[in-house]
Structures are given as C-alpha cells and as structure tokens.
C-alpha cells in the first residue's frame, strides 16, 4: 500500500441542524498519498469546498461535521484524528501540517496589514522563540520562492496585483513546510496566463519540497494536466476516483464523461461539445437513488431506487497502464450501476 498522509473516512457534513439540515458531504472516503497531487472536481455546490473546510475544521456556521474521521499520518508517528483534536492541538496542527490556499485570492490577505506582518505572524504563532530577524529572513525567502522580489515585503495587499497576491498566499502556505497543501480553486479569479504560470510554479515547488496537494477546482481540464489522481464529486458524494490518465481516457461514470465532454481537446478531430443537461441538484431535495440519475443519459430503473456504492469496477480492474504503475487496481473506483461492484465487504 502506498504511504497515506491524509485519510478521510466516512466524512459527513451538514449545514444546519435537525430536520432542516442540508447534507453537503455524505460518506466521503478519500486518501491522499505522500507527494501526490489529488484533484477534486465537480460542479458548483457538489461539496468540494465544504470537504476542504470540513477536513480542516474551518466550516463557517451553520456547518457541522456529523460523522467520520480525518486521519493525519505524521512522519513516523501514529495517525491522529483531526476531528477529535482539542483546540491547542488543532492550532498547532493547522498550517504546520496542513496549509490552505483559499478561493478568493483578492480577499485572503488582510488589507490593513503589510505582507511582512501576515507572513511572519504565522511563523511566530507556531514558533514563538524565534527572533523577528529570523522570521523576516524566512518571509523574504518565501517571497523569493514564489518569484516575488523581497522589497514587496513592506507592501500592503492593495499594492499587489491579483496574481502576486495569490503567489503570496502560496508562499504563505509553505511557510511552515506543511506535508499537505489544500488548494481551493486557487486560480479561479485569475486570467488563464497567470493561472498557468502559478500552477507551473506550484508543480515545481512540489517536486522540490515534496508536499502533497489536494487541488479543488471545477476545471477538469486543469486537473487532467496537473494532478496524479482525480476524484469527481457530485451531490456531496465521490462518484469516481481514478488516476488522471485513466479518467481522461476512459471515464466510467456518466457524470465524469459529461464533465470531460464539456471542454474541447487541444488535438484530434473536432467534436461537438455536449456538456451535461440540467443543473446541479438542490441539496435540500436530493433525488432518490443515484443523485445524478435525473440528468443521466444511461439512467436505468435501478438508479432511481438504490444509491450506487463506490467500489472497484469488475470489468475495468486491470487496464494496461495501471499495471505498469505499481498502483493496485483498488485505486480506481466508481459509484454507478453501469459498473456494479463486487460485494467485497462494503
């Protein structure tokens, strides 16, 4: 088994309490391995961001985690459940082990503090014994790491461009050399050129520093290029998880298929972009059975009745390139009645 760094098991997140609660995340299992980039894709409202907030316990009210565990495997230590940490432990865990780059590049920096203050306060919070000169040197180093000149240290956020701000945020995320960096649509607010620059830089940094990345986006084309594995979310559940090459070549879930068909390929013959008919489900009134069945072109009678289980599809368990990799066939899972799963204890 590959070395897991973060394991999510049976995570459930609700918004609100009691009868009116909306189930935003349902029974999500997901494993992040050491050094990999795991892409998390889905439409708006599929629960991607909620998952990111949930596993770091940053859910804004009325979000509540109603079940599951998030196991973090520190280097050579016993796994700890993030959801059961006390406040002090959680504070030490945050940023030092798992850092986040948030969606709003523009609003993630406090407008009234200098960049230097915002880079050094996190270092100070986790290592109060260091000198301020050492912290400042580290901040300079971090800016250098993301390609911003050190004289920007004394700037205020409004004096930087959007791309620079997001670079600062990435630099800030790396301040304590975390094992895991969660990126929640880090480049959505930026134009495609800057987007690409930043992603390339991110890939470089990851190769150099060796952290794992959970990359959340609605842009599947980005993920196919930049991530090792991709998990597709729909209606709060993971519906398919596969190595990105496999997913690109041969998506099993009709929803993944639809997502892949909603952007054009760079090479090859022209084909009509189909997209997915209908709109994402309303979390307050989810369809019975498979949440995707009202929009699915292959829907059967069974789909409206039973929720498909996420598991290894029997007919696809050994494709050529998976065998070349040392990955086990279990790395590919799907939740769809088109690919009924063996009863393997799930």
């Amino acid at each position: 088994m590959t070395d897991a760094v973060l394991e999510i098991r049976g995570l459930n997140v609700d918004y609100g309490l009691g009868e009116d609660a909306v189930h935003a995340i349902r029974d999500v299992d997901l494993t992040l391995h050491r050094g990999e980039v795991l892409g998390l894709a889905g439409e708006s409202g599929s629960g991607k961001s909620t998952l990111a907030y949930g596993l770091t316990r940053l859910l804004p009210p009325p979000g509540v985690i109603t079940g599951g565990e998030v196991l973090y495997h520190p280097d050579g230590g016993d796994p700890v459940d993030v959801l059961r940490m006390d406040h002090a432990a959680l504070r030490r865990f945050r940023w030092a082990e798992t850092a986040i780059v948030f969606q709003g590049a523009m609003n993630s920096l406090n407008p009234v503090h200098r960049i230097s203050t915002q880079l050094t306060d996190v270092i100070k919070a986790h290592d109060p014994r260091g000198t301020s000169a050492a912290r400042l040197a580290r901040a300079r180093e971090l800016l250098h790491l993301v390609g911003i000149s050190a004289d920007r240290l004394e700037s205020y956020p409004h004096q930087l461009s959007g791309g620079m701000r997001q670079r600062v945020m990435i630099g800030m995320a790396l301040a304590l050399e975390p094992k895991v960096v969660i990126m929640d649509e880090p480049t959505t607010a930026l134009d495609v050129v800057v987007q690409r620059q930043i992603l390339r830089q991110l890939v470089e940094l990851r190769e150099r520093l060796g952290f794992s990345v959970v990359f959340i986006t609605h842009d599947l084309s980005l993920l196919v290029e930049f991530s090792d594995r991709i998990a597709i979310m729909y209606g709060g559940r993971i519906v398919e998880e596969a190595a990105s090459a496999d997913l690109y070549r041969d998506p099993l879930h009709p929803y993944s298929h639809g997502l892949l068909n909603s952007f054009p390929a760079l090479r090859g013959p022209k084909r009509e972009l189909t997209g997915i008919p209908g709109s994402p489900p309303d979390l307050r009134g989810m369809p019975s059975g498979c949440a995707f069945h009202p929009r699915c072109p292959h829907a059967m009678e069974r789909c409206g009745v039973e929720v498909p289980v996420l598991g290894v599809p029997p007919d696809k368990s050994t494709t050529a390139h998976v065998a070349v990799d040392q990955r086990s066939p279990a790395d590919r899972t799907v939740a769809c009645w088109l690919h009924p799963v063996h009863d393997d204890g799930f």
């Binding site: 948030f102 969606q103 709003g104 306060d121 996190v122 919070a125």
Partner: peptide
Amino acid sequence: EDYVTVAHAKGLS
C-alpha cells in the same frame, strides 16, 4: 471575511 478564515487556518491564537 476570507482573511479572517485564513487567520484561523494559520493556527493563530
């Protein structure tokens, strides 16, 4: 605001 969430995520007191 996002920067307050970020401040929490940074593990500041």
